[in-house]
Design a protein around this nucleic acid. Structure first.
Lengths: 110, 110
DNA sequence: TATACTTGTTACTTTTCGTAACCTCATATA
DNA sequence: TATATGAGGTTACGAAAAGTAACAAGTATA
């Protein structure tokens, strides 16, 4: 009565996406490249965590970081092809949420 | 240059799904109802967390817990309609993972 | 009485998160 | 020269969540 093994790629992908804030950051980046401060002000995430997550996304090949030596410096984060391929995932989560999540279901149950 | 506000339902749904293990538990339950011990042995999650997550899924209306007074007692966890509606989400994550996650990308980078 | 089985819970340690203060680099201003 | 300003972070530290292992409740059988 054993279930099958988990596919390691699926497990790995799920682990990436199930880190807190990762999904929302990708959602924002799907709208187009974003600066650090734009992400920070448009999401309920602190600078420390945002910095950490962006490094993880870069390391995973999902986003890129580009430095523009303007003044003051401007840094743009942008999805790679691998990152843009997450569009259907985010879309399906959004569709499910719109249908099934009730408005009185608070994001944080603190 | 402000981004739009996040849809509260989307944010809430994302938060649910981005809790560690939630996605994998739902993946297993999509295969059919499962007992506590089946979930525990088929996923790399400890009993303590599994118990916690199943309570959360029940509270969110995604899964149900049914007691069968066999001997020893048998308890089955099963998805509700709201839970089964997550099928497209899990499927899209699986498709993305199979295409984009490299085999050498370990689930845990410990 | 003792043992076994399932479904958890408790106690404890380690890791991750959240908050706020601080740092760096490049200009701009007094 | 001194200091102020803005972007993009980093550091320090207490709080919360996760990981681990031992134990407990309920029921049946030896």
């Amino acid at each position: 009565m054993k279930s099958e093994e988990l596919c390691p790629r699926f497990e790995s992908g799920m682990e990436l996406l199930s880190k807190r804030w990762t999904g929302l950051i990708i959602f924002r980046l799907l709208e187009g490249s974003q600066r650090f401060s734009e992400l920070e002000s448009s999401l309920p995430i602190s600078g420390r965590l945002l910095s950490e997550r962006l490094k993880e996304l870069e390391a995973a090949g999902i986003a890129t970081r580009t430095v523009y030596p303007d003044t003051p410096v401007r840094i743009e984060y942008e999805l790679t092809e691998k990152g843009r391929a997450l569009h259907p995932v985010i879309t399906s989560i959004r569709e499910w949420s719109e249908t099934w999540v009730t408005p009185d279901e608070p994001a944080q149950t603190k």
